[in-house]
Nucleic acid binder design. Structure first.
Length: 469
RNA sequence: GCCCCCAUCGUCUAGUGGCCUAGGACACCACCCUUUCAAGGUGGCGGCACGGGUUCGAAUCCCGUUGGGGGUGCCA
């Protein structure tokens, strides 16, 4: 095993968004680098598509920064890109050929398939192993897989043994001379003196190939760690098509980075003690790859939401208000921008804070305060108004609120007294008022809302409801 | 087809041969609190896939079965 200084490489491929599974793997790497004083090396895979869309790469960097992995941290190195200039990769292939670890083959894919069909065995059969071919047009360079077994020592799974007879002589250089990904990857890892490769479980079957390449190149392979994948409710690997997997989307919906980080870390691993909600510093202290579970974990958005709600409630009111800014002052907010009143919002904020589990829910709790004609939930309105006491209560409240002192206790007592007159508790009495004023059957506490709305506006809405009913 | 990995409440997990009558968290249910909804409090429901071993003793070790997942390109 490797005794190099700790250098963990993280190599996502840019696909236009940053996958939550990748985020968790990055966090694993990051926690280790932080505790052991190592380096997190970000090396982004370089594909044609990504090359034409530099914003994809930037998206990865931004998403990493959001979950606390900042490019200017001393433990961070990169971003690098898989060397574009393939010279080093080709040179390594050349060495492999000269050392007898690789050979050229002139079979076309069709010919290979025919031979496979004839023999009944899948894949390439090593036809050109001993034909002594040199490089030439139409020829690929293949790795000469040695006989025996390859044992991958995996920090998560222990020793995994592969019988080399099941690994075909794979291609290193295409017939056009360009290097294949595995080769490029290994050469880059060697060049960067990578000590640990922590990645998703799906890469485990390809690991023996990489390990053989390291060894054939005269190098000591890195420490491997294959962590379980994240799955959806159907127990399938999270995919962009079916599942909500973009870290960016969670960020935009108002999940807090700390909540996301914490939740992600509980997938496949758990901090000590009875609470799963722990600061990242604790995670850094406790996280070990050896403790990571072996089986896939379901990414449960409901549980993420519960974590997020806890993190939101743990915020100070000031922090909460600040974090809400993008959700109450942006262009796609449901009220006219000029009608937003930061003072009113601040007053309501603590009440909203303990009710939401995502920041993007905030607007729906306060919109009626900034909307002149708040939309009314028809079904709820009809239902509430069908209660015989609703109309009389509305009538009496309008009358009483015309003159009452506009202050919390007075508003509450007045309302309560009217309700009592109808044999109702405050909880029932407030229903018609609430729907009249906010358009909804549920929402933030009513009296507080009325205070903020003011006498004129409250009365106006109450009268409008009376007319409507 | 071949290869590899995996298997504790619905879900995420604790558990590394006796501390397990299997612990916690999310979800769910009930009750309490209550100005709706939340939040908070209390309690409840619910699990070691199956079959063989090994052992005085197995969720924990071994074998098998079943079930799931992943990998298998001149893709990255």
């Amino acid at each position: 095993m490797s005794d190099r200084p700790l250098r963990l490489r993280f190599a996502p491929s840019p696909t236009g968004f940053f996958h939550v599974g990748g985020a968790r793997t990055a966090l694993y790497n990051w926690a280790l680098a932080l505790r052991q004083g190592g380096t997190f090396v970000l090396r982004i895979e370089d594909t044609d598509e990504a090359r034409n869309q530099p914003e994809w790469t930037q998206g990865i960097i931004d998403a990493l920064a959001w979950i606390g992995i900042n490019a200017d941290d001393p433990h961070f190195e990169g971003p690098y890109f898989q060397s574009h200039d393939a010279n080093a990769h080709i040179a390594a292939a050349q060495r492999l050929f000269e050392g007898g670890h690789a050979y050229y083959c002139d079979l076309t894919p069709d010919q290979i398939q025919e031979r496979a069909k004839a023999s009944g065995k899948q894949g390439y059969d090593g036809y050109s192993r001993d034909r002594g071919l040199g490089p030439g047009p139409g020829r690929v360079l293949r790795f000469r897989v040695p006989t025996g077994t390859t044992v991958v020592h995996d920090l998560v799974r222990g020793a995994v043994e592969f019988d080399n007879t099941n690994i075909e002589d794979f291609v290193l250089l295409r017939s056009n001379g360009s290097p294949i990904f595995v080769l490029a990857n290994v050469v880059d890892d060697i060049t960067m003196r990578i000590s640990h490769v922590v990645r998703a479980e799906e890469h485990l079957p390809n690991t023996p190939k990489q390990q053989m390449l390291w060894e054939a190149l005269g190098e000591v392979p890195p420490v491997w760690a294959h962590v379980p994948v994240l799955v959806n409710e159907a127990r399938k690997k999270l995919s962009k098509r079916r599942d909500k997997v973009a870290v960016e989307q969670y960020r935009d919906e108002g999940y807090l980075a700390d909540a996301m980080i914490n939740y992600l870390m509980t997938l496949g691993w758990a901090p000590s003690g009875d609470s799963e909600i722990v600061p990242f510093s604790r995670i850094v202290d406790e996280f070990r790859l050896e403790d990571v579970k072996h089986s896939p974990a379901f990414f449960d958005i409901k549980k993420l939401g519960a974590f997020n709600g806890e993190y939101i409630r743990a915020l100070s009111t000031e922090q909460f208000i600040e974090l809400c800014a993008p959700y109450v002052t942006s262009d796609n907010v449901p009220w006219p921008r000029e009608q937003f009143n930061p003072v009113v919002f601040s007053a309501m904020a603590p009440l909203v804070q303990e009710r939401v589990s995502r920041l993007d829910e905030v607007a729906s709790y306060v919109d009626f305060l900034f909307l002149t004609d708040a939309p009314i939930d028809e079904a709820a309105f009809t239902k509430v108004m069908s209660v015989p006491t609703s109309r009389p209560i509305l009538d009496e409240v309008v009358k009483a609120y015309e003159t009452v002192e506009w202050e919390h206790e007075a508003l509450k007592e007045t309302l309560d007294a009217i309700g009592t007159g109808h044999g109702l508790k405050l909880g029932k009495t407030q229903a018609p008022i609430r729907i009249a004023v906010s358009g909804r059957p549920v929402g933030p506490p009513l009296i507080e809302s009325l205070e903020l709305l003011g006498r004129d506006e409250t009365l106006r809405r109450l009268r409008a409801a009376l007319e409507r009913a």
